[in-house]
Structures are given as structure tokens and as C-alpha cells.
């Protein structure tokens, strides 16, 4: 499946899709989107790359094993969950920075939590797909 057309297309599509996935992640609080969908789109971006260049090549590009992203995501989500405890609030209370940040907008612990979900989803999907693809070919 090493077609030059797909290879050059995915070279440009990968960053665009990743950007789109971040866009989905960030707008999730106000418009359709969110960490789960964003994560899936990002995973698809890498899968597309692996179709064009082969899974081994994609793994090389990622530098880290996709399974290593899972714990990072879980830790980020857990931090978002327990952050309010430091401020003496119950677990999972939403914390917000008073002033909106340019481009990104309002930032709160919910976004941090969503980033955790985003990372876990990427890690899980890529772990499953890449493992199967590497071991069965």
C-alpha cells in the first residue's frame, strides 16, 4: 500500500488533521467536539500516516510507544480531578481562570480533564491498532 500519492497527501494531512483534532478538543466546551472526538481524529491522522508509510515507520516518527501516552493522559485527568482539593473544594469541582486567554478562550480544570481524555483515547486507539497491525503482518 505504499502509493506515492497517499504518502505525499498524508504528509500534509497529518499536521492538518492534528490541528483539527486540537481545534475539536478546544471548542468542545461550547460547540460540538471534545476530548473524545478530538482524540479519535488525532488517532485517525496517525493511522492514515501508517497506511501510507507502514506502521513501523509511524512508530518511529512517534518516538514514544503509543502505550506510553495512556498513563500520561490518565495522570493529567487525575490532576484535573484532584486539583480542586488543593483549594479546599470537593473533588471534580470546576476551576476557572478569571480572564479569558487570547485565541483559546476561557480555561478551566474541565479543559485539563478533556486533554487527559484526549491523550488516553489517542494512546488506547493507537496501542490497539498498531499492536494488531505490527503483529499480524
Amino acid at each position: 500500500m505504499k502509493s506515492p500519492i497517499l504518502q505525499s497527501a498524508s504528509r500534509y494531512l497529518l499536521p492538518i488533521l492534528l490541528l483539527f483534532s486540537v481545534f475539536l478538543l478546544l471548542r468542545g466546551h461550547y460547540y460540538p467536539g471534545g476530548g473524545f472526538v478530538g482524540g479519535l481524529v488525532a488517532a485517525i491522522a496517525f493511522v492514515l500516516h501508517s497506511f501510507a508509510f507502514g506502521t513501523a515507520e509511524s512508530m518511529k516518527m512517534l518516538k514514544y510507544k503509543p502505550s506510553a501516552i495512556i498513563p500520561v493522559g490518565l495522570i493529567v485527568a487525575a490532576i484535573a480531578m484532584f486539583l480542586p482539593v488543593l483549594f479546599g473544594l470537593p473533588v471534580m469541582t470546576g476551576l476557572w481562570i478569571e480572564e479569558p486567554i487570547p485565541v483559546v478562550g476561557m480555561i478551566g480544570s474541565a479543559l485539563l480533564f478533556d486533554i487527559g481524555v484526549y491523550l488516553v483515547v489517542i494512546g488506547v486507539v493507537l496501542t490497539i491498532l498498531f499492536t494488531i497491525s505490527l503483529e499480524t503482518h
Binding site: G34, A77, W96, F113, D114
Partner: peptide, 19 residues
């Protein structure tokens, strides 16, 4: 502080479930 109710439910109201 969000407008997308689906996502609010996922990350805030029912955040434990999502976790």
C-alpha cells in the same frame, strides 16, 4: 461555564464516570 451540554456532562457533571 460551557455551552455544549453533552461535553459539559462528560467532563464536569458526570466527570467521575468519564474518569
Amino acid at each position: 461555564k460551557g455551552k455544549n451540554v453533552v461535553n459539559i456532562v462528560l467532563v464536569d457533571f458526570r466527570g467521575f464516570d468519564t474518569m
